[in-house]
Computed example of a mutant assay.
Amino acid sequence: MENLRLELIEVITHCCDVKTFRFELPEDVPYIPGQYLVLTLDIGGKKVPKAFSISSSPTEKGYIEFTKKVSDSQFSRTLESLEIGRAYDIRMPMGKFTFEGEHPKAAFLSGGIGITPIRSIFKYATDMRLPSHLVLLYSSRTPEYLIFRNDFSVMQKANKNIKVIYTLTHCDERVEGCRAGYIDGDMVKNEVPDYSERPFYICGPPGMVDGMSSMLLKKLSIPMQHIITEDFLGY
Rank of each mutant, 00 (worst) to 15 (best):
I147E: 08
Q35I: 02
D186Y: 11
M155I: 07
P205E: 12
G111D: 04
Y235E: 15
S139Q: 07
N150P: 03
V154Q: 12
L82C: 09
E176I: 04
F148E: 09
E80G: 14
F99S: 10
V11M: 13
N190P: 02
E7D: 05
L130C: 01
I54L: 06
K123E: 13
E102L: 05
T169K: 09
T78L: 11
Q225P: 05
L25C: 05
F23M: 06
Q74R: 14
D42Q: 15
E2Q: 13
Y138L: 01
C15P: 01
G207D: 14
Y145C: 06
I121L: 05
A87H: 13
S196E: 15
R91A: 15
V164Y: 09
L8N: 11
F66N: 10
D194K: 07
G185Y: 00
Y63K: 05
V38S: 13
T40L: 04
I90W: 14
S132D: 02
P206Q: 02
L216G: 02
G34T: 03
P49H: 07
P33H: 10
K218T: 08
K19C: 09
T78W: 05
S71M: 11
V70R: 14
K50I: 06
T40W: 07
A107F: 00
R179T: 01
S81C: 09
N3S: 10
L220E: 05
L130M: 09
Y195V: 00
P131F: 01
Y124R: 08
P104Q: 06
L168K: 06
F23E: 00
S221A: 15
C15Q: 14
I115W: 07
S120K: 02
A106I: 00
C16I: 10
I115K: 08
Y31N: 10
K218I: 00
I222L: 08
Y145K: 14
L82S: 07
S53D: 02
I227C: 04
G34Y: 03
Y166C: 03
F21K: 05
K61G: 07
R174G: 01
I43Y: 12
G95P: 08
L233M: 12
Y166A: 02
G112F: 01
L136D: 08
V48C: 09
G207P: 08
